[in-house]
Design a protein around this nucleic acid. Structure first.
Lengths: 238, 238
DNA sequence: TCTTGTCTTGCGGGAACCCGCAAATTTTCC
DNA sequence: GGAAAATTTGCGGGTTCCCGCAAGACAAGA
């Protein structure tokens, strides 16, 4: 059994190495890669079926890497080990998990014990192991209370990238008014219409404020923006 | 001699502890705190004059913590040890360094050797030790080429928080038109006016696009936004 | 003092945004 | 199949944004 570790921080990498050794005596080879790009290459060459990786790496982040790994071998088992449970990450992961794949998502702040259980759970028992806290975010992002639908989320990204309503309409093949409708839904869900007695009415630029709130609540983050920007650029010839 | 370590990742914390022990034999006490808030308290109680800390911690980030520490004892020597050299962080640090204080800024990716040199340089020799790469960002942010002036940067934050032109004018005690002028300067400096043959003219909402570009270039980041939001809320009664 | 340069302010207009209203369309569910 | 619910679309108008133009305000320097 082979395990591939993709993690850019050397300290964390060696800690993971240790943990894998300890939790998985049946593992005979541990490989390491120090960024998403190297990770993809390693995965391809070594045919490793077990990967544990960080999200948020420079060069190429975990979500990108995981997507290409899964595209090449959808039965790869991946354990995500991240510092954050930003909704943007959780949503990003959920978006790329192939049908029926087994994966896990644990935070770096969890105990040794829990990490080892997750390693065994995902790699040996083929369970999906999602940290409690991450699970919480998943729920919230689905529960229509605060949660944005996928449609709304995509609009949010387009807006955040700075596209005009017209441009979005064109991109999404919708009428202008429909885009604006979606925007209004966003404004409500993100609760952009001023707090209580916060000064005069027209204090906020709703469009901008919605993005600001999304960023503050971690519904969006820099990495989601980068992904969006890349897609945008590749959508045309650029 | 006492050294206080403020860092939320336990792995990095113990690594730092080790490094301090090795680099500073004259240090007899090493204290640890696991977030900005605890760090402030520790600094106050222990009267430590030497602090090494991470930026970007949950709970309360390094810049906030450093500011209150410096406010209470401006002669404290602080070494920032961070994963990133985002312009937003560099600018944030520069903004709070008191007159004549000695500090350092090194990246977590630097070698053991360099870290130890920085520790000795800042704590013993009272030098300012700034990593090469961080220095580069500093230069760029000053060189008027791409660099935003402080005035422009502040406007950028206000816009990113979602304030309207009118609101900003009021906040900054300027006329509406002046605010819009500053905005236009921003638009030029951030190079928001479409790339080459990128589709029709009105593709971007300039206001939003400027913020997106700033985020992508790390001129702004989530932590800067949070700081801005907090200031905004405290500016009124809220 | 007069010039030169930078910054601020006012005015005006075209474009984009925000949104209520209502009809047309699609989806959902019994 | 048909009714109810949700989405999409067009229209119209009030507001904000974006910005060219030009007249003051202020500072530095010949």
């Amino acid at each position: 059994m082979k395990v591939l570790i993709i993690e850019d921080d050397p300290l964390h990498r060696s800690y993971l190495h240790e943990a894998v050794r300890a939790a998985l005596p049946e593992c005979d080879t541990v490989l390491e890669a120090e960024n998403g790009h190297a990770g993809e290459v390693q995965a391809r060459q070594s045919r490793a079926e077990h990967v544990v990786m960080d999200l948020q790496m420079s060069e190429r982040n975990g979500i990108e890497a995981a997507r290409t790994i899964w595209r090449e071998r959808p039965d790869t088992k991946i354990l995500f080990w991240s510092n954050y449970s930003d909704e943007a990450y959780v949503r990003g992961v959920a978006r790329i998990v192939p049908e029926g794949a087994t994966y896990g998502y644990v935070l770096k702040s969890t105990s040794d014990e829990r990490l080892k259980l997750a390693l065994r759970g995902v790699f040996i028992e083929s369970q999906c192991v999602i940290d409690r806290e991450v699970r919480g975010i998943q729920q919230k992002s689905l529960g229509t209370a605060h949660g944005l639908s996928d449609a709304e989320y995509e609009i949010l990204v387009d807006v955040a990238l700075g596209l005009t309503d017209k441009a979005i309409a064109q991109r999404k093949k919708l009428s202008l008014r429909s885009v604006q409708n979606r925007l209004q839904q966003l404004y409500e869900k993100l609760d952009v219409y001023e707090g209580p007695g916060n000064g005069p009415e027209g204090w906020y630029n709703l469009r901008m404020r919605a993005v600001a709130v999304a960023l503050l609540r971690k519904v969006l983050n820099a990495s989601a923006l980068e992904r969006g920007e890349r897609e945008l650029r590749s959508a045309r010839g650029n």
